[in-house]
């Protein structure tokens, strides 16, 4: 019986201390860590159309269309299909694609979640956190990897 009373006392203790672990979500926005991987942001100005991100993407989420002169025309990313592994950001030599902390995105249909480069450019920062800055200390480890200069496959 002592065990039963212990169980009951423990739950009652939690009931009476009045503390809650959950938060009221839209009012209390959660703190996300600087490394959090949310929706992508793409910068056409920076992009050199090396297609490394398209190459490394494990499930073909990124689709790049180029013309005959190897000028970039389209940059499409299906954020509903993406598994948020951050490999595209990791391989990008010019930080043209970033994963922001923004996890609040919706769409009525699957097609709504297929973003083109304009939509990707307009993805807002979450709480004005620029992931590039917050993650900066670590990027050296990957950008200068291997020997010699970066290989553009």
């Amino acid at each position: 019986m002592i065990g039963l009373f212990k169980s009951m006392a423990t739950t009652m203790k939690h009931a009476l201390d009045g503390s809650t672990f959950t938060v009221e979500y839209p009012e209390t926005t959660p703190e996300v860590s600087p490394r959090f991987r949310g929706v992508h942001k793409f910068s056409q100005e920076r992009c050199i159309w090396c297609r490394q991100c398209e190459n490394v993407c494990p499930n073909d989420t990124i689709q790049i269309v180029m013309d005959d002169q190897r000028n970039g025309e389209q940059y499409n990313l299906h954020i509903g299909q993406c598994i948020y592994c951050r490999l595209c950001e990791e391989v990008c030599p010019v930080d043209a694609i970033l994963l922001t902390q923004n996890f609040e995105f919706t769409g009525d249909t699957k097609d709504d979640l297929a973003y083109n480069k304009e939509q990707l450019k307009n993805v807002p920062w979450y709480k004005d956190i620029d992931p590039l800055q917050s993650r900066e200390p670590d990027r050296g480890a990957w950008i200068g990897e291997g020997e010699g200069e970066v290989d553009y496959e």
Binding site: M1, G3, L4, K6, S7, A9, T10, T11
Partner: peptide
């Protein structure tokens, strides 16, 4: 606390 709640509970 888990031990109080789970493993020492006689019915458990």
């Amino acid at each position: 606390e888990y031990h109080d709640l789970i493993s020492s509970n006689e019915i458990f």
